[in-house]
Structure formats: structure tokens, C-alpha cells
Amino acid sequence: MSKKVIIIVLAAAAAAGLVFVPSILAGSDTGSDTTVNANVSMYSVRVDQAAEQTLQAYLEINGEIVPEQQVAVLPDAAGKVVSVKIDLGSEVRKGQIIAEIDPSKPGTSYALSPVYAPISGIVTAPPAAVGSTVTTASTIATVSAMKNFEIEALIPEREVGQLTEGLKARITLQAFPGEVFSATVIRVSPVVDPNSRTKKIILSFDVNDSRINPGMLARVKLNTRTYEDVVTVPAEAVINVRGSSYVYVMEGIDRVALREVEKGVSIDNTTEIKSGLSGGESVVIQGQQFLTNGAAVKVIGTRSQA
């Protein structure tokens, strides 16, 4: 009875086909040839070619649109605000009187002390209220220059080694979906904030646009390191086993070879191959889980058809 059961099980296995474990998992030598059972059907795979191209690394962070110049207006004398000649959003000229302070105290009487706008621009913070008492350290109003705008962004400490003036960025704004504005890093803070563990950068728009307003939230895609003329493959082509990286490379039209490679950076589903592969070679990107070194395969499509 037991012999019949064994025969039935073996027959079923033969009918269903053999499932091969990749040679790297079985501990075999990846450089040796693996004999493929002639009775086993070809495995269906999708392939793509290794390419030589330039990879651009980047960071994506949030930023805020701010005026190029913003000044807090302080009075020359302490006292009571007796008049305010501007409102939030008012346009002012440099030297224009925007408020008056009465420095008089009980038993004394002094002339009013005028408060002048130090720059031309727009009042971007609510001015002090008439009747309020101020000191020479009190802010009467905030005036912002409205000709040029900048973007302030905070970069995590782990990424600050990539920062330098002149880096290019692509800016998107919620107010203008689908539009991209270009900008350049013009200043990098010399210190890391000990509380947030971030470093501030300032970017300037390459082209001024009157639609952009201070206070808008900006999404910043900041280009950092560039990797020129490197061999790349789709990230899904790389198999990582026991700390090593491998790809299946097409040999002829119906065979694959398992090859160890040295992996570099990965950016947007594209992986750099530092050694072990040349540009133009075809690699398997789908169906590797059933393959072994030297397996017979049938190519059913490329990456674009996946």
C-alpha cells in the first residue's frame, strides 16, 4: 500500500513540474553551470536593458514663501500711540510717517514723535493700536519689500552634508497645481538648530512671478548629488541575498545567468550598478523567484509592457 502512495505522489510531482530554488539560496556556486531539466517548461519572464545614464539625487521638503527683506518698525521714543496712518496691507514708501507717539508723562508735555517707514513695501503685520503704550523695543508695524520673494526651508541634520549654495530646485505651490517654478539656493545657514536638528536654507526664484505671495506653502524638490554616466537597471531587477546583490542576465534568447553585482545608489526605482554589468545587457525584472543559474526562459515582455 505504501509503495502505491509513493508512486502516486511522484507521478503528481512530475505532472505539475519541478519548482527550483535559486542556486544562491541552495548554497551552490553561482559561477558554475546548472543543468536544467529538459522536461521542465520554460519560465516566463520580463526583461529590460541596463542603461548608461546620469542619476540626479534630490531631497523633497516643505518651505515657506517669505519677502526678500522684512523689517520690524520700532519707535524712537516710548509713550502712547496717538495715531496710526496705515493698515494691514497698506503700501508705504521709505521715509513715510506711519504712526505718531506721544512721549509726554504726567506733569510734562513733549512734541509728538513720528515713526517712519524704514523701507518701501507692504505692511505685513497688524500695526499697533491707537492708545497702546509702547517702548523703544515695541514693534509698531512690519514692512516687507514685495519685489522679490524667497523660500525658507529646513533640512534635516542627516542631509546637511549635501548642502551648498547654487543648488537648483523645482518649486510647486498648492495655489497653482501642475506648474513648476525654478529656484536656486542662495544662502545656507552656518549652524544646525539644536532644538529641531535642522539647517535653514534660503532659495531665490529664478524668475519673479507676481502671482506668488508671502506666506504660501512651497513644496521644494532640491537637487543634490549628481551621478554621471553610470550603469543602471530597474530596482526590481536586483536580488539581495545574504548581504550580496545579484541580477539574472539574458544569455542568448532563452537562457539566464545569475551574476553578482555591486549595487550603488537607488533613485526613483532605478539602481546604479557599480560593477558586474555593462550597459546594453538585458536583465530579468519579473519572474526571478523561480529561476536558477542557467534556467531556460521565455521572454514575454519588457518593462514598458509590464
Rank of each mutant, 00 (worst) to 15 (best):
S2A: 14
K3V: 05
K4H: 11
A15R: 08
P22G: 05
T30L: 14
A38Q: 09
M42I: 03
M42S: 15
Y43E: 05
S44L: 10
V45Y: 00
A51K: 10
E60G: 07
Q70I: 09
A78G: 15
S83Q: 07
K85S: 12
I86C: 05
D87Y: 10
L88P: 02
E91W: 02
R93D: 15
K94Y: 11
P103L: 08
T108L: 15
S109A: 10
S109M: 02
S113T: 15
Y116I: 04
P118M: 10
P118K: 02
T124Y: 00
A125T: 02
P127G: 06
T139G: 08
V143H: 02
M146G: 03
E159M: 06
E159R: 10
Q162E: 13
L163H: 01
L163G: 08
L167W: 11
I171M: 12
L173T: 04
A175I: 07
F181L: 09
K199D: 15
K199S: 14
L203F: 06
P214N: 11
A218T: 11
A218K: 08
D229A: 13
V230W: 09
A237N: 02
S245V: 03
V247Y: 00
V249F: 01
M250C: 02
G252A: 05
R255Y: 05
A257F: 00
L258C: 00
V261L: 00
K263L: 06
I267M: 02
N269S: 07
I273C: 09
K274T: 04
G280F: 07
G280K: 00
L291C: 01
L291E: 03
S304Y: 07
